[in-house]
């Protein structure tokens, strides 16, 4: 019983990290209607920027962290200006393909600039484990989880209760409608990419703090994609909740189903769940239901 609870708690904490990456998907989608397949690569860039600032340049953490956040946000803005602004008004299909190209480009660029070898990532958050009764909690993930929950609430408030956030929602609904209502699509997409980049960097910190950093860290993007989908691409709170669901499911599958299936269940779980969600409730748990007419 204690083992079950321990597995569940571990799953919740890992899931909140997934939720944080999913949140960066949601922010970009929610404000620009772009599903950024290259989000994992943004996480990677954020991680390497922080590594450069903290380890290579030797800046203290209180300076390195904001610098990396700003750097990744800036990269998002540059990408928006160079790639996605010329594509405003194009079909979603074209934009997805552009993000795929971006995935290839960024992955290559990171490898070209920083090399392929893995290196230790600075410990941004305290490590070790916290003992709570019979349970052990990973301190890094716990702090990351608290951060995710706080951010979720702040972003939820921003998107639903501020004028700027509502403007972003209008852009997410339809570029042309938003334009005809006098809302600047360019401004909205710039804000979206700024936020999306900064969140990706933040996710990198929580995910990699005190671990090893290598080019494969970008894989988190593909794990978080099903999470964003399950929560609904338009829902900020949904991302965190879906992260918890996927994290717990994965942890339980890893503990109880993997021994029976030769370790196949836990890596497949998020994707199997995604296919099932798409079959039953395509818009995700809290996404917008779109009704199309001819």
């Amino acid at each position: 019983m204690i083992e079950l609870a321990q597995t569940t708690i571990g799953g919740v904490l890992t899931g909140l990290v997934y939720g944080l990456v999913a949140l960066s998907f949601v922010v970009i989608y929610r404000a620009a209607r772009i599903v950024n397949v290259a989000q994992g690569q943004l996480v990677l860039v954020g991680a390497f920027l922080l590594w450069t600032a903290a380890s290579a340049l030797g800046l203290p953490l209180w300076l390195a962290v904001p610098a990396a956040l700003a750097g990744t946000g800036l990269l998002g803005v540059v990408l928006e200006r160079l790639v996605f602004r010329p594509l405003v008004g194009q079909s979603g299909f074209t934009i997805v393909l552009a993000t795929i190209a971006l995935l290839v480009l960024l992955q290559g660029l990171v490898q070209l600039l920083w090399g392929a070898e893995t290196r230790p990532f600075p410990a941004v958050l305290p490590s070790g484990s916290l003992h709570l009764g019979p349970f052990r909690l990973n301190r890094t993930l716990l702090l990351g989880g608290v951060l995710t929950v706080l951010l979720t609430e702040v972003l939820h408030w921003f998107f639903l209760h501020t004028r700027e956030g509502l403007r972003l929602a209008a852009v997410a609904e339809d570029h042309f409608t938003a334009l005809s209502m006098g809302i600047s699509v360019r401004r909205a997409t710039t804000i979206a990419w700024l936020l999306g980049g900064a969140l990706a960097c933040l996710a990198a910190m929580v995910l990699l703090s005190g671990r090893l950093l290598g080019a494969s860290a970008a894989g988190i993007g593909f794990v978080a994609l099903p999470v964003a989908l399950l929560g609904g691409l338009e829902s900020v709170r949904g991302a965190a909740l879906a992260g918890v669901i996927v994290g717990v499911g994965e942890a339980l599958a890893s503990a109880y189903l993997d021994p029976l299936t030769n370790g196949a269940m836990s890596p497949i779980f998020p994707f199997a769940l995604m296919v099932i969600v798409l079959l039953i409730r395509p818009q995700g748990l809290f996404g917008w239901r779109v009704i199309e007419r001819l």
């Binding site: 190209a101 971006l102 290839v104 480009l105 290559g108 660029l109 990171v110 070209l112 392929a116």
Partner: peptide, 22 residues
């Protein structure tokens, strides 16, 4: 480094696709 060529190929392909799309 040997990996740099693979990386450069990726950078080139990504740029070519993006330029093509735009």
């Amino acid at each position: 480094q040997g990996g740099a060529i693979f990386a450069a190929t990726n950078v080139l392909l990504g740029s070519v696709i993006l330029a093509g799309l735009i």
